[in-house]
C-alpha cells in the first residue's frame, strides 16, 4: 500500500516489460542515449566499455536448428530496493554518490560526487552501471543536441539509468504548481517507455492501483531478474515462454521454476 514519508505520499516507480511484445528493435536504447546525453565514440563495439544505460540482451533457448528460439530482454537499471532500500550498489558506495530515494524508489547517481572507485559496478549483478573510461567528446557541432536537463558526465565516473529522474522532477514541479498532490501517470514517463514502438514497456508507480503497472506486475507470467539474490528489483518482466522465465534466474538442476512472487 501507499506509504507516507514526511506526511507526503511516496511512490515506488517501476516497469513492467512484456517480452512477448519486445522485438529487440533498439528504440529504447537510442531513446535513452538521446534523452540522457549518453556519449559515444567512433568504435563502440567493445560492449564492455560501451555505455548503454538501457541494454537489450539477446537470449536464446539453446536448442538446435530449427527448434531455436530467441527472446530480447531490455535491461535498464533495475532500481533494486533490496531490503529497505539496501540495494546492492547503494550500500557499497563509499562516498554516498548513489542513493536509494525513499520518496520515489529511484536509485540515483550523482556524477559530481562519484570519484570512480567502481565498487558499485562490482556490486551490481545486472551490469547496469557504466564507467566513463574515456572523456566524453562530441564531434564538433553535435554538442548542440545535448539535453540541458541532464548533465553530461565527465571521465572517470560511473553512470547508469536514472528512470529519467529529470522527468520526474519536472513532473513533480508541475504537479506542485498545479496544486496536485500526486503526479499523474502520464505526467511522468521515461524516454524508453515513450519511444518503444511495440509498447512493450509500461512505467508507473507500482504501489498505485490507478497506474497500469500495479496490475500488470501481477500477471501470472511475471518474473524479475535474479530474484534469489534478494535484490528486490522494480523492473518486472512478462513472458509466455517458460524458457524465458527460467532464464531470469539461476536454478539448480533439481529445481523447478517457481511461480512469480510479488
Amino acid at each position: 500500500m501507499k506509504q507516507e514519508h514526511g506526511g507526503v505520499v511516496t511512490q515506488k516507480y517501476g516497469m513492467v516489460v512484456d517480452l512477448d511484445l519486445c522485438t529487440g528493435c533498439g528504440s529504447c536504447m537510442v531513446a535513452c542515449m538521446a534523452e540522457n546525453n549518453v556519449p559515444f565514440r567512433e568504435d563502440e563495439t567493445d560492449k564492455l566499455k560501451s555505455i548503454t544505460w538501457m541494454r537489450v540482451y539477446k537470449l536464446t533457448n539453446g536448442k538446435h536448428y530449427p527448434e531455436t528460439d530467441i527472446c530480447y530482454l531490455p535491461r535498464p537499471c533495475q532500481h533494486c530496493e533490496g531490503s529497505h532500500g539496501h540495494s546492492p550498489c547503494v550500500s557499497v558506495c563509499p562516498a554516498t554518490a548513489t542513493d536509494y530515494d525513499n520518496q520515489t524508489g529511484i536509485v540515483s547517481q550523482i556524477y559530481t560526487r562519484c570519484f570512480g572507485c567502481r565498487y558499485c559496478m562490482g556490486a551490481c549483478p545486472y551490469h547496469a552501471r557504466y564507467f566513463n573510461w574515456y572523456d566524453p567528446i562530441w564531434p564538433e557541432g553535435m554538442e548542440r543536441y545535448l539535453n540541458p536537463n541532464v548533465s553530461p558526465r565527465m571521465r572517470g565516473v560511473v553512470e547508469k539509468c536514472s528512470f529519467c529522474f529529470h522527468r520526474y522532477q519536472a513532473a513533480k514541479d508541475k504537479a506542485h504548481l498545479d496544486g496536485q498532490k500526486e503526479i499523474d501517470e502520464d505526467a511522468y514517463q521515461t524516454a524508453c517507455t515513450q519511444a518503444c514502438p511495440a509498447g512493450a514497456i509500461t512505467f508507473g508507480d507500482l504501489d498505485n492501483p490507478n497506474h497500469a503497472v500495479h496490475e500488470l506486475k501481477k500477471q501470472p507470467d511475471t518474473f524479475r531478474l535474479l530474484e534469489k539474490l534478494g535484490t528486490n528489483t522494480k523492473v518486472y518482466y512478462v513472458s509466455s515462454r517458460e524458457w524465458v522465465r527460467r532464464a531470469g534466474d539461476n536454478y539448480l538442476k533439481t529445481e523447478g521454476l517457481k511461480k512469480a512472487v510479488l
Binding site: 534523452e35 543536441y145 539535453n147
Partner: peptide
C-alpha cells in the same frame, strides 16, 4: 537547438512510437 526527437502522439501512422533511426535524427 534540437535536443530530442520523439514520436508524435496521435499521428495515425506511428501513434507516438518511433524507431531507433528516427530517434537518432539529430545526430
Amino acid at each position: 537547438r534540437g535536443v530530442k526527437i520523439e514520436g508524435m502522439k496521435g499521428h495515425p501512422v506511428n501513434q507516438g512510437g518511433i524507431c531507433a533511426l528516427g530517434l537518432s535524427g539529430l545526430q
